[in-house]
Design a binder for these strands. Structure first.
Lengths: 156, 156
DNA sequence: ATTTTATTATTAACATGTTATGTAAATTGA
DNA sequence: TCAATTTACATAACATGTTAATAATAAAAT
């Protein structure tokens, strides 16, 4: 039987936002335990990963890359700073900017956790299938693209 | 060029959890404004939708259907109760259970908001394509299924 | 019948999501 | 130059996410 597309709200536990939320939660369930063992939230881990890819990012850039809003990021960095996993310095060129970097302890923690994350990701890829996973990425990207271009039209 | 599957962590702003998060946020951006106009969070709206589909659910069942944890749900219901959008009564058969229903005001609010949600969902379906959307649902379901069956194995 | 265990729900405590507001520094424009 | 605007960041306030602890009731076990 075909879903009730275009007529009424989908049986709501199968709505698009819910389907995306469930999928995300299912995936995260695989990654979170190894983070919790190291007292990291998934958001804190995102920040550490971003800084591992490139040191010395300002908070706005970090927010873009980690998909975090600035108020959250502000608190997260304060927390990581307290635990001496990151350091904050001030931009010479622009005194508004904070520049964030991993400390040695932060880099060490990244290296400790990363292998387990890679392993779990590979396990998902294997179970689900590489081709399907790539297809899923493409569909998600296209969905975002289509919605955002629509957004642009409605925002004029 | 092919992604770095099976070697290291994906360029992390393109990781699977991030892709799912971004997609969900993109979708929600279309629905949230009409909810905010009526002072509802997306979670509160989920509860109202679930109760519109079936009245008199207990909190555990509501949590399953809305994909909310009980502590969140506890607060959400307290809030909606205060605004007289839902009512709580007690199960005769089991004194531990609260039974939640929409009030008339709650039903009225649902009827007020639902059309706009349907419209926005149809717009997304149209933009993205019905076939692709169905394919996306299937992939997400299958992803969850594969991950959860793996979870079962690891939990033994 | 009484102890034990499981279930339902709440509360506490802390991190994050989200909107609004504030502040300082940079940029733009007249 | 200097007033107006924009940008980068922080804080406030409240809702939610998440784990742990607690209380009350129900069900199971002995």
């Amino acid at each position: 039987m075909v879903a009730t597309a275009g007529k009424e709200l989908r049986g709501f536990s199968r709505s698009l936002p819910m389907a995306l939320l469930r999928a995300r939660e299912a995936v995260m369930k695989k990654f979170i335990p190894s983070l919790r063992e190291n007292d990291l939230s998934s958001q804190q881990w995102r920040v550490i990963r971003a800084l591992n890819e490139e040191q010395g990012l300002d908070i706005t850039e970090l927010g873009d890359r980690c998909f975090l809003l600035m108020p959250s990021l502000s608190r997260i960095i304060r927390n990581l700073e307290k635990r001496i996993l990151v350091t904050r310095s001030h931009s010479e060129a622009d005194n508004r900017r904070s520049v964030i970097s991993l400390t040695l302890a932060g880099e060490k923690l990244f290296k400790k956790i990363a292998p387990a994350s890679v392993e779990r990701y590979n396990l998902i890829t294997e179970k689900f299938g590489y081709g399907k996973l790539e297809l899923l990425y493409e569909l998600l990207d296209e969905l975002i693209e289509k919605i955002d271009e629509d957004q642009a039209v409605n925002t004029r």
